[in-house]
Write a protein that binds this DNA or RNA. Structure first.
Lengths: 339, 339
DNA sequence: CGAATGCTTGCATACCTATGCAAGCCGAGT
DNA sequence: ACTCGGCTTGCATAGGTATGCAAGCATTCG
């Protein structure tokens, strides 16, 4: 196992000082072309690369962003993770990933460990932070961005789709389709996405003078959503349309309807989802759904993060990105509307 | 933005030396109970936690594992990533994640950046390393483990399922089902998994005196696999069974057969996949497939990695884990066999 | 009671790099 | 020709922690 090669080794070989080597590898430092050439040559022969840890220790910027994510079985998150990673790499940052597990009990421990690594910023996906943690991050001067969650009144930066508008679009489409008994399967009660989607959905139904026919809790979980579906359809007056709070559950709902209950979608029941995950477009499901524009959400997240890193005093923004309703075949079309 | 609180601050408050503070937070150092109590109290009031960067700089162990992954749209990988992260966190390690993108051109740059962070080890998923990189990691004394890939003769540690055996099981099941024209859609030609699955599959067919009816390249990609399916079925003598090199492609194949070509699975064509991703069990697909035991593969990966970190001189092992054929409904059952 | 042993603790240093400061050099302006 | 300014470079130090070494202390054994 070879010893690590340090800037001092390079300096000796090139016959210059250690600081000269450092400057050659530091963006925007004052170095003559000749010096740069000699140092780079020496570094090349020795295989030298700056130690990111030492650099981070002294500059106070590690170029590491902590990502906290609860689970990855909803395909929306791997997709976002991949795009986030790519976008951050382009800015010279890298992702230190922490998972909290479904139950998310140890979020506090996890964030503490993140702080130990002196991350420059934190992105949380599908995670809600305690006020205590929020304060600790603020005290450490570390910006936090909530991805696909918001905590109203917390003053934390957040990037979501426009969930209220999305819920509204879902309601309007189902109303236009002439549905009479419209039900909803919610996500997780503690999640802003779930609350907002429901609020927008319900408001639009109310505005049309038609209330929500039934509600069940799906907890953003396949099995729970499947149970909820059975309960809904067991009623004496089963719904003729269900708006499901995300695609991940909506696919499970369609499975139950078609394979357990022998019903047809959308002839017997219309299904609407939320997210537009890749699978929603597959012909086996062909799910009508409200798109969350992952690419733009990621882009907004990275931009906001970079802005906060640049200007820590900046007030954090809460960004909502509008997404279209993607009309496919899982919900009855409004009269006269083609796809 | 508060200044960072250091071990020196804690030492002053507790009226002890900085080294004492360090020892309290260092596993296995000699500290009296009284000292520990006082220091911890002081640390608590100041909100002190050891700086992982500084610690890593001096100990040479960062407790960071680099994970390099090409893409996450095959759901096998998010699942593995989540389990890996959880298992490593339990051992006190954390994942620094790098994505190379589909084209994987910049693997070299990516690994270089990983090395900059002085990671203790590297896990690569669905990535093949150049010999050059391998040498550099070895020179830096950093163990590398290939997850779900192997590079024969490279001497690198690798964890895979027993892909040859898996291919064999697939062939035997299709043969037992009485299929006469058995085709195969391969993965990516550069991937050991694809080569081994094919080798086992073909060997078993040959042993039965029945050759491979047709082969197409699917490149572990949905769109490519869909094209391959159309070519196969366009032949004058289309196959009556297709073994697809992974589930991700197999689902696309089923979509094409059923929705584009109007064929029935398994009545017209039997389909076999590989991986047993969660979606394979969903009733819309109900895919018969060879399971890759993710949990055991992850466990083996972590164990091997820990062993290599403990004893760097240890010769790396190549671990193959056997997985069962999971019989579902996408392939005709052998005569007399129930599910 | 003296010496030897074992546990604690502080001192000093090392890990590797970035950067303020001052010195050196060269060219330009008057 | 002299001075001034700008660009380069080296020196020295900081950043936060772990650890070898020696000193201090208590304990135990003969």
């Amino acid at each position: 196992m070879a010893k690590k090669v340090t800037s001092l080794d390079v300096a000796r070989l090139a016959g210059v000082s250690q600081s000269a080597v450092s400057r050659v590898f530091t963006q925007g430092a004052s170095v003559s072309p000749d010096m740069s050439k000699r140092v780079r040559a020496a570094a090349e022969t020795l295989g030298y690369r700056p130690n990111a840890l030492a650099r981070g220790l002294i500059t106070g910027r590690t170029k590491i962003i902590g990502l906290v994510v609860a689970y990855l079985d909803n395909p929306f998150y791997p997709d976002a993770l991949e795009k986030l990673s790519t976008a951050l790499q382009a800015e010279g940052y890298h992702l230190l990933v922490f998972t909290t597990g479904k139950h998310g009990v140890d979020t506090d421990r996890v964030i503490s460990e993140l702080l130990d690594y002196q991350v420059d910023g934190i992105i949380t996906a599908s995670i809600t932070l305690s006020g205590e943690l929020t304060r600790r991050c603020a005290a450490a001067g570390i910006p936090v961005i909530l991805f696909n969650r918001g905590i109203p009144g917390s003053g934390l930066a957040a990037v979501t789709s426009d969930n209220r508008a999305g819920g509204r679009k879902a309601a309007e489409f189902l109303l236009a389709g002439g549905h009479a008994r419209i039900a909803h399967i919610t996500g997780f009660a503690g999640a802003s996405t779930s609350r907002d989607r429901r609020a927008g959905f319900e408001a639009a139904l109310d505005a049309a003078g038609q209330g929500l026919h039934a509600v069940e809790d799906g907890r953003y979980d396949r099995a729970t959503a499947a149970e909820a579906t059975r309960r809904l359809m067991d009623r004496p007056d089963p719904p003729d349309a269900i708006f499901v709070a995300n695609d991940h559950m909506a696919l499970a709902v369609m499975d139950v309807l078609r394979f357990d209950l022998g019903l047809k979608v959308p002839e017997d029941v219309s299904i609407l989802g939320y997210d537009d995950v890749p699978m929603a477009a597959w012909p086996a499901y062909d799910l009508t759904t409200v798109r969350q524009p992952t690419r733009r959400m990621v882009q907004a997240t990275v931009e906001e993060l970079m802005a906060l890193l640049e200007t820590p005093t900046r007030t954090a923004r809460s960004i909502e990105i509008d997404g279209p309703l993607v009309v496919r075949g899982s919900a009855r079309l409004p009269e006269g509307q083609d796809r």
